[in-house]
Write a protein that binds this DNA or RNA. Structure first.
Length: 297
DNA sequence: GTTTGAAACACTTCTTTCCA
DNA sequence: TGGAAAGAAGTGTTTCAAAC
C-alpha cells in the first residue's frame, strides 16, 4: 500500500454505517477513524498500537482493548504479522468498509433512522472506494479529466445521486444464467458450477446476504474461491489441523481460536462480493482500479 | 461494576562488546 | 576476523490498582 502514514495531510474514510452500529462507542469510532487515516483503498493498514495510542492520547493497553472489541464486533480484522526472519511486527488491520452480516448487526447504510432530512449526502456517496488517500493522489485527481463515476466521495457529495437498484436476498432457487455459466466455464472449466452455486445460495441465505446483482456476486465468489484455492491449497481443504498449525506458527502465544482464518476469509468474501455487485451496477465506477475482479468485463 | 493507565511480561531482531 | 554473549529496541498481552 502507499505509505502515507507520515504525511500529516493524509485523510481517512468513515463509512456511515459505522455510526449506526448499535455497539460501536466513541472510543471504538475514534480508533476506527485513526486506522482509516492509515488505511489504503481496501481498508488495510498496520500502524502499531503505540502509534494509535499516541494519536488518540490513550495508553497502549487501552487501544489494545478497543481493538479487541472492534475485532469482536467484526468492524476490523486483525492479522498478526511476523517478519521474514520471524520477528514480531505490528498487526495488520483490515477495516470493514462495507456492511456484512457479521459486522453490520442491524446497522444498514439505508437505516430507517436515516431519513432524507438526516442525510446531507446522497446515498451514492457511500459507494465508491478511493484508490489512494495521499495528497499527491488528490492533486493528480484535481488535474486529470474525470470519467463518469470516478469522482472522489467528497466531490460526489454535491453531485446528483445515481439511482441504484435495491439489494435483495438471494432466492432459494437461484441458479447461474447461461451467460454466467459460459463466463465461468471459460475461466474455470474444472469447477462444478451447480455445486458452487448451491453453496453460494446456502451461504447467502444462512447469513442473510443481500445483493443488488446476485449474478455479479456469485461471479465474485467464484473468482475469490478459485484464488484462495490456488494460493492456500492446504487451507482450502478445510483441514482444521492445518489451520491451527499455521496460526500457531504465526503467533505462538495467541489465544485466539484456530478457525479465525476461515472467518476472516468469509468476511472478506462477503465484503468483496458486495462491492463487486455494486460495481457491476455502475459500470466504470472502479475509480481507476480497472475492475480488480474482472467481474462483468 | 466499568474503564483506564502503569507496570510487568514474553518474544524476537538488531547492535554492541568482548574474546579466542 | 569470526563467533558468542549481553543489552537495547520494538511488538502485543496480561495483571493490578485507581478513578469514575
Amino acid at each position: 500500500m502507499t505509505d502515507h502514514s507520515a504525511n500529516p495531510n493524509r485523510w481517512g474514510r468513515i463509512p456511515a454505517w459505522w455510526l449506526d452500529h448499535p455497539e460501536l462507542d466513541a472510543d471504538g469510532l475514534a480508533v476506527l477513524a485513526a486506522l482509516s487515516t492509515y488505511a489504503d483503498d481496501m481498508g488495510v493498514c498496520w500502524p502499531s498500537q503505540a502509534t494509535l495510542a499516541g494519536k488518540l492520547k490513550r495508553s497502549r493497553p487501552t487501544v489494545n482493548r478497543i481493538l479487541g472489541r472492534l475485532e469482536a464486533l467484526g468492524l476490523v480484522t486483525i492479522e498478526h504479522r511476523r517478519s521474514a526472519s520471524g520477528g514480531r511486527l505490528s498487526c495488520r488491520y483490515r477495516l470493514a468498509l462495507t456492511v456484512t452480516d457479521d459486522a453490520g448487526q442491524g446497522a444498514r447504510v439505508d437505516s430507517p433512522a436515516d431519513s432524507a432530512m438526516d442525510s446531507p449526502c446522497p446515498a451514492a456517496s457511500h459507494e465508491q472506494l478511493e484508490p489512494e488517500q495521499n495528497p499527491d493522489t488528490l492533486h493528480r485527481r484535481a488535474g486529470r479529466p474525470r470519467v463518469a463515476g470516478q469522482e472522489p466521495a467528497h466531490a460526489r457529495s454535491v453531485a446528483k445521486p445515481a439511482p441504484k437498484p435495491t439489494a435483495e436476498p438471494v432466492d432459494q432457487d437461484w441458479t447461474p444464467s447461461a451467460t454466467d455459466r459460459q463466463w465461468a466455464a471459460s475461466r474455470f472449466p474444472a469447477v462444478d458450477l451447480d455445486r458452487h452455486a448451491e453453496r453460494f445460495v446456502q451461504q447467502c441465505r444462512a447469513h442473510g446476504y443481500r445483493y443488488r446483482d446476485v449474478a455479479a456476486a456469485w461471479r465474485s465468489w467464484l473468482l475469490q474461491d478459485m484464488t484462495r484455492m490456488a494460493q492456500q491449497p492446504a487451507e482450502a481443504t478445510g483441514n482444521p489441523a492445518n489451520r491451527a498449525n499455521r496460526k500457531a506458527d504465526a503467533r505462538p502465544d495467541a489465544k485466539r481460536s484456530a478457525n479465525r482464518p476461515a472467518a476472516d476469509a468469509e468476511q472478506r468474501l462477503s465484503a468483496w462480493a458486495s462491492v463487486a455487485a455494486r460495481l457491476n451496477g455502475q459500470p466504470g465506477a472502479a475509480a481507476g482500479t480497472a475492475n480488480p475482479w474482472g467481474v462483468g468485463a
